[in-house]
């Protein structure tokens, strides 16, 4: 799974368009990732502002909130 830093995210929805698993959705609260994600990192590579990161379970992340 990925998560986005809503302080950086522009709500541009480009990541949604490149996700091969259709795992991302742009909602009122920003980008939401569902369980179809297979951690391929394509969205991370695309994001124009570097707002996306892999969410690694058990590792404390620098991102404050989970969308």
């Amino acid at each position: 799974m990925i998560r986005t830093d809503s302080r950086k995210c522009l709500r541009c929805s480009g990541c949604v368009g490149v996700c091969p698993r259709s795992a991302l959705t742009l909602t009122e609260h920003g980008i939401v990732c569902d369980s179809r994600c297979n951690n391929c990192k394509i969205c991370i590579n695309f994001c124009p502002v570097g707002a996306i990161d892999l969410e690694i379970e058990g590792v404390r992340r620098h991102l404050p909130t989970k969308v």
Partner: peptide, 21 residues
């Protein structure tokens, strides 16, 4: 728009490769 989730649900694969976006 670039999200293009509706087409994918309808069965047309519109996913963009990174070189094409």
């Amino acid at each position: 728009g670039v999200e293009s989730k509706i087409a994918r649900e309808a069965g047309i694969d519109t996913t963009l490769r990174l070189v094409d976006v």
